[in-house]
Every structure is written in C-alpha cells, then in structure tokens.
Design a protein around this nucleic acid. Structure first.
Lengths: 141, 141
DNA sequence: ATTGTTGTAATTAAAAGGGTTACAACAATA
DNA sequence: TATTGTTGTAACCCTTTTAATTACAACAAT
C-alpha cells in the first residue's frame, strides 16, 4: 500500500512550472519528459492543480503558469488537490458485530487514535511550502 | 487510497483475544464473527501476529492467546506485523529525467519531507498501546 | 477413530492506478 | 482562413492489491 504517485508527480510538476516557467513554455509534453511519465498523466495533474486554483493552464496555445504564490502553497494543499486520500487514511472493516462487546465499541476505541495519526502526517505536509522546496532546489541547481 | 483493513482487523482481533480470551476459546470462527469477515482472513491475521511474537495460536485444538504484555504492544507494532506499508508510504514516479534540473534533484528536495511526514504518523501509532485501548474498552463494556 | 480446528494454497472478483490511443476544442499565427 | 501545436477528456487496457471464498491436509484432544 502506497499513496498514489499523483502526489509526487504534482509536486514535481509545480516545481517545474515555478522554477523553469520563466525560461520555457511549460507544456504537458515538456513536463512529462522531466517527470518521465505519459503527457496525459501530466494533463490530468495540471487539471487538478488548476481546479485547486494553484496554477492556470492555457488551452489551445498551451502552457501552464503560476497563480498562487509559492509561499502559500503547502504540500498538504497539493496532496488534497490530487485526491491522494479521501476521508480516513485507514480502511476499516465494514459492519463489526454489534452483539460483541469488542465489535460494538471498536470504532469508539480506535477512531480518534487513527485520526490523530493521520493528522500528524497531514500537519507535517502543511508545514512545508513549495517555496521551501524551491529554495532547496535553487541551491542544488 | 487507504491503508489496508488488515490493520484495523488485527487491532480488533487482539482486543478480542486480550479482553475476551479469559472467558472464551478464541477460534478464528469466533473472532471472525465479531469482526464480521471470513474466518480465513482472521487466520491470516493470526498468522502474522504470531510471527511477530505477539500471540500464540494452537493448531489442532484451536484458540489464540496472548504472549506479549498488552502494555508493550503498540499500534505501530501491529501495523508492521500485518505489513500495512513497506518502505515509503509515498509512491514516487520512477526515473525522473536526470537531464532536467528538477528531475535530477526532485528526490534530494522531497524525500526528507516525505520521510518526516511518515515518521509523524508512525510515531503517533507508537504512542498508543493495546493496553490503552483495553482501558478505554473496559469503560464502555 | 472422531471431532473441531489451524495452516495454507488456489481461485475469483473487485477496485485503483497508471499507460496509452484517439480526437474534438481551442488559441495563435501565418 | 487554414495550419499548427496544444489542451481536455473519454475510452480502453493492463497490472497490482486486496479480500472473500473453497478446499483440504495436518494436527491436537478426547
């Protein structure tokens, strides 16, 4: 079990747009060759990021460009934009037996701890911005 | 994307064994009727938990019983016992283009943040023991 | 020997993810 | 206006993962 690569693909895509967008027209083909996936995968990613108000994409003439400030884009926002996880990260067995004292109370006992764990993950993702990644990247380039 | 229900099934299974095990023979059929899944699913779960040294299972005569102290069993230990996640929780696209400044450095920029987020999740799971859950459960029963 | 159970292989079915092809819609421009 | 390059999206395939289920040999206790 792993969280879909849509997430890391989306981060990669945004870094490309925000860092290379000044020098190149950021078409789905261009980005696809950097990420090394099919251009349609990138178009789907761009579509999600556009719907989230993070970027704009020009149909026809082509090219993706920043809308939101990189300081204001967290990894969490990207993660939600591409629908990595809907609702609880943890799958629960359906219909535990209400006639069993354990089955009846398993949700009451477990749910809050699972939610805490998920929140811990997501809070970490909220603490990192695209701008942070760009700074790291600019040192390496 | 969700983390496999093997995890919550395993927690449910352990609660049943540790709480109800004094009064009932904990067969895979018995546990299966509390969790409401196929008995073979429970046998596989028991097999993993036994391999992790958490419980013992009697072949032939039947019944699962505690080995480890409930104080020493964390949710994280259960989560690893049933192989929820191997390695990184986050899937990464294979072979980003090394000729692109972004593709070449995407791992250097992103990996540590993803590892931090995963660690935050797992640390939360480490902070809760089966004993904690049993205490909560005993109040509700 | 009988009974109830575990351990495990094999099969099926469903869901999710990603790759790919195809093509209409569209914008810019020659 | 015709051409070109691109986006948006549907459709389909393929693989992987997961869980349900059937089946049955191995085993322990009586």
């Amino acid at each position: 079990m792993k969280i879909t690569s849509r997430f890391t693909v989306a981060v990669h895509t945004l870094l490309a747009i925000y860092v290379l967008g000044k020098d190149y027209k950021m078409t789905s083909d261009f980005i696809a060759s950097s990420v090394n996936v099919n251009p349609v995968v990138i178009r789907r990613t761009l579509s999600s990021l556009k719907a989230a108000g993070i970027i704009d994409v020009k149909a026809g003439s082509g090219g993706a460009m920043p809308v939101k400030n990189a300081d204001d884009i967290t990894l969490y926002e990207i993660y939600t934009a591409v629908d990595c996880v809907e609702g609880s990260l943890f799958n629960f067995h359906e219909n535990p037996n209400p006639k069993c004292p354990v089955g009846k109370n398993i949700h009451a006992v477990l749910d809050s701890h699972l939610a805490d764990a998920q929140a811990a993950l997501e809070n970490k993702l909220k603490s990192v911005t695209l701008s942070d990644l760009m700074k790291q990247l600019n040192i390496l380039i």
